[in-house]
Amino acid sequence: PVYLSVKADNSMFIGNDPVTDETMITALNALTEGKKDTTIFFRADKTVDYETLMKVMDTLHQAGYLKIGLVG
């Protein structure tokens, strides 16, 4: 499974590897070998604001990742 996490300080990680807004999709493409039907499990600290969550989800959708599971 692929886990994308947003921490309380808005830092992002794919698994244990830090990513930025600019590198997130490139890292996901490498990890999933470009398979856009891969489910991305998205988790965020409860203090992360809604705007940040939606920005990340919008970026995922624009890149073609449509299977996003929200996890606690």
Rank of each mutant, 00 (worst) to 15 (best):
T20E: 05
T23M: 07
N16E: 12
S5A: 07
T20R: 04
E51Y: 10
E51Q: 12
T20K: 04
T59C: 08
D45E: 09
T32P: 01
Y65R: 00
K67S: 11
E33H: 14
L66Y: 14
L28H: 00
M54F: 09
N10P: 01
S11D: 05
D45Q: 03
M24C: 03
D9N: 10
Y65W: 05
N29F: 07
T32K: 02
M57W: 09
L70R: 06
L4Q: 01
A63V: 03
A63T: 02
V48T: 07
V6T: 02
F41T: 04
D45Y: 05
L70M: 12
D9K: 08
T26L: 11
T47H: 13
T38C: 08
S5T: 15
V71G: 07
V6A: 02
T26E: 14
G64A: 01
T47G: 15
M24Y: 06
G69W: 15
I25P: 02
I68K: 02
T32R: 02
T38E: 05
T39N: 08
G15E: 07
Y65D: 00
L53S: 03
V56F: 05
L4G: 01
L28C: 03
E33Q: 14
G69A: 15
L4P: 01
T26M: 10
Y3T: 06
K35W: 08
V2S: 01
D58K: 14
K35Y: 09
Y50E: 10
D49N: 13
G64I: 01
S5I: 15
L31A: 12
V71E: 10
T32H: 03
T26K: 11
N16F: 09
E22R: 08
T23R: 04
F41C: 14
V48Q: 03
A8F: 09
E33F: 10
T52N: 06
A30C: 10
G72E: 13
T47Y: 12
Q62D: 10
G15H: 04
M24E: 00
M57N: 02
K7C: 14
I68M: 04
Y3R: 04
P18L: 12
L60P: 00
L70I: 13
T52L: 13
A27I: 14
F13H: 05
D49K: 14
E33V: 08
S5H: 14
T38F: 08
D45V: 03
V48M: 05
Y50Q: 12
K46T: 11
I68W: 03
A44G: 04
S11R: 12
T32I: 05
L31E: 04
L4W: 01
K7T: 12
K55E: 04
G34E: 05
M54T: 10
D37M: 06
T26I: 11
T39Y: 14
A27T: 14
A63N: 11
L28E: 00
T47L: 13
N29Y: 08
T52C: 06
E22Y: 08
H61S: 09
L53G: 01
V56S: 02
F41H: 10
I40H: 00
G72F: 10
Y50G: 07
E33A: 12
A44I: 13
T47W: 11
P18N: 05
M57D: 01
T59H: 09
M57V: 11
E22P: 02
S11V: 10
I14L: 14
P18K: 11
S5P: 01
D45C: 06
L70N: 06
V48I: 08
L66H: 15
S5G: 03
T23W: 03
K35N: 14
K36Y: 08
K46V: 10
G15Q: 07
Q62I: 07
K46W: 10
S5R: 11
F13W: 15
Y65T: 01
T52R: 13
M12W: 06
E33G: 15
T32F: 06
T26W: 07
M24Q: 00
K36T: 10
I68H: 03
P18Q: 12
V19T: 05
G34R: 05
L31C: 07
T26C: 08
T47P: 06
A44F: 13
V48H: 04
T23L: 06
V71M: 11
A27P: 01
V48Y: 03
I14W: 04
T26F: 09
S11G: 05
S11K: 12
A8H: 09
Q62R: 14
M54L: 11
D21H: 15
V48C: 06
K7I: 08
D17W: 13
E33Y: 09
K46L: 10
T20L: 03
E22Q: 11
K7L: 14
T26R: 09
S11T: 13
A44P: 10
K7W: 10
K35V: 07
A30R: 13
D37S: 09
T52A: 09
K67N: 14
L66A: 07
T52M: 11
T59E: 07
G69N: 15
S5N: 10
S11W: 05
M57R: 06
D45T: 04
P18S: 09
D21M: 15
I25F: 03
F42D: 00
K55Y: 07
L60N: 00
K35Q: 09
D17S: 12
A8D: 08
K67C: 11
M54S: 09
L66F: 15
E33T: 08
D37P: 03
V71D: 09
M24S: 01
D17P: 01
M24R: 00
I40Y: 00
V56W: 07
D17M: 15
T52F: 15
L70P: 06
T52P: 02
D17H: 13
L4R: 00
I40S: 00
I14H: 01
D58W: 11
P18V: 08
F41S: 04
D49F: 06
L70E: 06
M57S: 03
M57E: 03
D58E: 14
R43C: 15
V6H: 02
A27V: 15
D49M: 10
Q62H: 09
L31V: 11
I25A: 03
T20F: 05
T20S: 08
E33W: 06
A30G: 07
D37I: 03
K46C: 13
F13P: 00
K67L: 09
E51A: 13
A30I: 13
L60H: 00
Q62S: 11
D17E: 13
M12G: 01
K46F: 10
M24N: 00
K55V: 05
G15V: 02
G69D: 15
M24V: 08
G15R: 03
L4N: 00
V6N: 01
T39R: 11
N10V: 03
L66N: 11
K36L: 10
A27R: 14
K35F: 07
N16Q: 09
D58M: 12
V71Y: 07
V56P: 00
P1C: 13
A30P: 01
K67G: 04
L53A: 04
G64D: 02
K67W: 08
G15A: 05
Q62Y: 07
L60T: 01
T23S: 10
S5F: 15
P18R: 12
E22G: 08
F41A: 04
A30K: 13
E51V: 11
V19W: 02
N29C: 05
E51W: 11
N10T: 07
H61W: 11
V48W: 03
S11F: 07
V19A: 02
K36A: 04
R43T: 14
V56Y: 08
S5Y: 15
M57G: 01
L53Q: 05
V48A: 08
A63W: 05
A27K: 14
V71P: 08
K55H: 10
V19G: 01
E22M: 09
N10A: 09
E22D: 11
T38G: 04
I25R: 02
K67D: 11
I14V: 13
K67I: 13
G64Q: 02
V2Y: 03
M57T: 04
D9V: 06
I40K: 00
D21T: 15
T38W: 05
